[in-house]
């Protein structure tokens, strides 16, 4: 039933890493249109492989607006 279930054709398909305007990451089936507000990063891969890459890419989970605000405060 779930996306991770091997029965789902989606689970077996190719996936992509997506990132939104806030710098939050997720994954999305490569065959489907990328939803507005998200950009695709890198080539398609299995779902598991995409998630593994995200584990390294998304080291700072603060939204980008907060990061910017905090940097400004530190600088001032």
């Amino acid at each position: 039933m779930s996306l991770s279930s091997s029965h789902s054709p989606l689970a077996q398909a190719q996936w992509r890493i997506l990132r939104n305007h806030e710098g939050r990451y997720s994954v999305h089936p490569a065959a489907l249109e990328t939803p507005p507000g998200w950009e695709a990063l890198g080539p398609p891969d299995t779902r598991a492989a995409c998630l593994e890459k995200i584990a390294h890419l998304w080291s700072d989970m603060r939204p980008s607006a907060l990061q910017a605000a905090m940097t400004q405060v530190e600088a001032s």
């Binding site: 991770s4 990328t34 939803p35 507000g37 995409c50 998630l51 995200i54 998304w58 080291s59």
Partner: peptide, 16 residues
Amino acid sequence: KPDVTADRFIPDPFGP
């Protein structure tokens, strides 16, 4: 846990 977060929180295709 960025990977678990990306796994459970997925892009919302309906919002737009």
